[in-house]
């Protein structure tokens, strides 16, 4: 039983990581209807930039983080300027494929700017097992994972307030609803997009820091981020709580499947379990856990 709890907890922690990436997807999708395939690479790019600033320019941690945030905002501005601006009112599938191209550009740029070797990211986030959990419940859990969970919670709370209470948040939701209607009441689409992509970039940075601290900053990070896609299918593309819960379900589900089912089929089913789960789910509830059913009109 203890082992099961341990597996579940470690699954939840992995799930929090997925949620962090999924959150970036949701933000952009909500505000622009774009399914941003590059979100994972953005996390990688942010983490690479952070490490690069610290290693190559000897920035202290706080300055490196600020520097990275500046870079991510500049990136958002460039993306809007060069790409999004020219793709307004295109089909969603065209926009999706454009972000595929963006993923390649960012990947190549990250490699050229900061090198493609695996990097260690040490921000002084506590490492090792949590003694308290080990002593009082006999459960092994990484401090880093607890830290990640807390960070995610704070960020979600922050985003919720941002969306519900601020003027920009309301404008964001208006844009998500209907581009043209939003334009016609005087909301600047371009500004909104820059803001959203900046926020998504910062979320990507947080995700990149967490993943990077755990397993080093390397290209596989952007592949792990692909797992955010099944998370979104479960949670719905427009729901922030959906992204969190979806992430937890996927994280826990694949850990349990790996530990209890994996040995019978040769292991490594973590590679595909999330996608299959999402696929099965899609067949029964195409709109996700929290999405609304859309009435089609002709």
């Amino acid at each position: 039983m203890l082992f099961f709890i341990e597996v579940t907890l470690s699954g939840m922690m992995a799930g929090v990581m997925y949620s962090l990436v999924a959150l970036g997807f949701v933000l952009i999708f909500k505000a622009s209807g774009i399914f941003n395939f590059a979100q994972g690479v953005m996390a990688l790019f942010a983490a690479l930039t952070l490490v690069g600033l610290m290693e190559k320019f000897n920035f202290p941690i706080w300055l490196a983080i600020i520097g990275t945030i500046v870079v991510m905002i500049a990136l958002a501005w460039l993306i809007e300027r060069i790409m999004l601006r020219h793709l307004v009112n295109q089909e969603p599938i065209i926009l999706f494929m454009a972000t595929l191209g963006l993923a390649y550009v960012l990947e190549g740029m990250g490699d050229i700017l900061w090198g493609s070797d695996v990097k260690v990211l040490d921000l002084g986030i506590p490492q090792g097992a949590s003694d308290w959990m080990l002593d009082s419940f006999d459960i092994y859990i990484e401090k880093l994972e607890i830290f990640a969970a807390v960070t995610a919670a704070i960020m979600v709370a922050f985003l919720a307030v941002f969306f519900q209470k601020t003027r920009i948040g309301r404008a964001l939701r208006a844009v998500a609803d209907d581009h043209q209607a939003a334009l016609s009441v005087g909301i600047s689409l371009h500004t909104i997009w820059v803001i959203v992509w900046s926020v998504a970039g910062i979320v990507a940075l947080v995700a990149g820091i967490m993943w990077g601290s755990k397993s080093g900053v390397q290209f596989s990070l952007s592949l792990i981020a692909l797992k955010a896609l099944p998370v979104l299918i479960l949670g719905g593309f427009t729901s922030v709580p959906g992204a969190i819960i979806g992430g937890l379900i996927i994280g826990v589900g694949e850990k349990i499947a790996e530990v209890y089912l994996g040995p019978f089929v040769g292991g490594a089913i973590e590679n595909w379990f999330a996608y299959m789960l999402a696929l099965a789910f899609l067949l029964f509830r195409p709109q996700g856990l929290f999405g609304e059913k859309i009435i089609e009109r002709v």
Partner: peptide
């Protein structure tokens, strides 16, 4: 088959399932 119920990038995710599952299958069996 999922394409009958799901569209666009939802379907893209479904085909990712094919990608990862089939490659795993050819690796493990």
């Amino acid at each position: 088959l999922p394409s009958l119920r799901i569209k666009g990038f939802y379907l893209a995710v479904a085909t990712l399932a094919a990608q990862f599952f089939l490659i795993w299958l050819f690796n493990k069996v």
